[in-house]
């Protein structure tokens, strides 16, 4: 259950980056990227079902707990293998590893709460409902997007 992004809503303000840093002692786990000047998207952990980072971690510091890819700081040696094993480049290792922890211990993730454009949500259904609604609108306007 990662945080889902509705890319068409993202305004590239980087508020999620700042929010994530604020609640994680200065090290952020999300990067906002820009596609030319047309679009922007936050890039962060997908909490993959088959998570390469957990397969590379030799201490099981990174491990699956249900749908989450969880991290046990006590077990991490900071070896740096997970940083190289994530296909999306969203684990960092400075002395120890860090990545999106879905704001463990908080009711709602900081990035979701903060995003002023409502681009982030924990609800996959909501994201896909909105996408379907947009598709329907497009169809209603003669297929022109």
């Amino acid at each position: 259950m990662p945080v889902y992004v509705d890319i068409s809503r993202c305004i590239g303000c980087r508020s999620c980056e700042v929010a994530c840093k604020r609640v994680h002692g200065g090290s952020g786990h999300v990067n906002v990227h820009f596609a030319g000047d047309n679009a922007s998207v936050p890039v962060f952990c997908h909490h993959c079902e088959e998570a390469s980072c957990t397969m590379a971690c030799f201490t099981q510091a990174l491990h699956k707990v249900g749908e989450r890819t969880a991290f046990d700081v006590e077990k991490c040696t900071g070896c740096g293998l997970c940083r190289l094993a994530c296909p999306f480049g969203v684990v960092w290792t400075d002395k120890i590893a860090h990545k999106c922890d879905l704001c463990e211990g908080r009711e709602t993730p900081a990035c979701v709460l903060t995003c002023p454009a409502n681009a982030l949500s924990l609800d996959f259904e909501l994201a896909s409902r909105r996408a379907r609604a947009r598709a329907a609108l497009v169809a209603a306007h003669g297929g022109r997007r």
């Binding site: 992004v5 890319i7 068409s8 990067n31 990227h33 820009f34 596609a35 030319g36 047309n38 679009a39 922007s40 998207v41 890039v43 940083r83 190289l84 994530c86 296909p87 999306f88 480049g89 969203v90 684990v91």
Partner: peptide, 19 residues
């Protein structure tokens, strides 16, 4: 491919349709 380029590729892939 380095982690920075991996993030860039992911961002490109995600925004392609939108752009």
């Amino acid at each position: 491919v380095c982690p920075v380029c991996r993030r860039n590729i992911e961002a490109e892939r995600a925004t392609k349709q939108m752009v």
